[in-house]
């Protein structure tokens, strides 16, 4: 069975550095797949290839049967892939609500004349979608706050909300709980779980916290030095000798 996302024999090199080397993996419809691996193992690079930020040296990436290679990040977003960043990239000077509204951008009809004349029926429709997400992620108290003024944990939530606002079919989360307190991690885990249950979105996430990752993931893939060293259930992958070596060796 072909997955929602098929990555085939993917390689990426920066000059002499091989960030990814012949990685193949498939993300099945409505599963939650975790990518683990030590620092510099190519996890973020993989996400950057999928979302069109990096151009792989060779290999294939297909989403829902269509190749993503050669497409710009905004086209890939429109195809239904959303992501968050390892180091937050929020629109700092916008309100939390407006950050989410940018997530709605790709659903706008984009009528310039209507925008100039302040015809706002569409705007109101999209705002109600954002309000649903704001409620889901408990962002009500900050909806009108400047995103840059929010605490780190809230900013992480805003970025998740912005990605959800695009109504993706596949959501990529790059270290969603890094830097969060234990309590915040629990909350985040609940949301990621709900995203799958309630919104029926397929999730691919990178995580260093193996406990957190194995609790959420159906399956797990481990990378080391740009190579896939293990794949399987979280328990299998964590017991895999290569994985143990990669983590202990680090």
């Amino acid at each position: 069975m072909a997955g929602l996302l098929e990555v085939g024999d993917l390689s990426l090199a920066f000059g002499g550095i091989k960030a990814i080397e012949g990685v193949s993996l498939s993300v099945l419809e409505s599963e939650t797949l975790a990518v683990i691996g030590p620092n510099g193992s190519g996890k973020t690079s993989l996400f950057n290839c999928i979302t069109g930020i990096y151009r792989p040296t060779s290999g294939a990436i297909a989403f829902h049967g269509a190749s993503l290679l050669g497409h710009t990040p905004d086209e890939i977003a429109r195809a239904g892939v959303a992501r968050t960043f390892q180091n937050l990239r929020l629109f700092h000077n916008m309100t939390v609500l407006d950050n989410l509204m940018v997530g709605r951008h790709l659903h706008f009809a984009k009528n310039l004349a209507a925008a100039a004349l302040r015809l706002r029926a569409e705007e109101i429709r999209h705002r109600s979608r954002c309000e649903e997400i704001i409620e889901f992620l408990n962002l009500e108290p900050v909806r009108k706050s400047r995103a840059g003024d929010c605490p780190y944990g809230v900013q992480k939530r805003v970025e998740l909300g912005r990605a959800l606002a695009t109504e993706p079919r596949l959501l990529l989360l790059d270290e969603p709980v890094s830097g969060l307190t234990q309590e915040e991690k629990e909350e985040f885990g609940y949301w990621v779980h709900e995203i799958r249950g309630r919104f029926r979105i397929t999730v691919l996430f990178v995580e260093h916290d193996l406990r957190f990752a194995s609790r959420l993931a159906d399956r797990m893939v481990a990378l080391d030095h740009g190579v896939k060293i293990a794949e399987g259930t979280p328990a299998e992958v964590q017991r895999h000798p290569e994985v143990v070596k990669a983590y202990v060796g680090n």
């Binding site: 905004d74 890939i76 960043f85 509204m101 951008h105 790709l106 302040r118």
Partner: peptide, 27 residues
Amino acid sequence: NLVSSYVGRAFVAIRDADLAAEVNGVN
């Protein structure tokens, strides 16, 4: 009107974080 519409948001998004604007569908 423009700055409070999707156009203005796209502009500010590009200024604040162009990469994030792009992966959220802003051309």
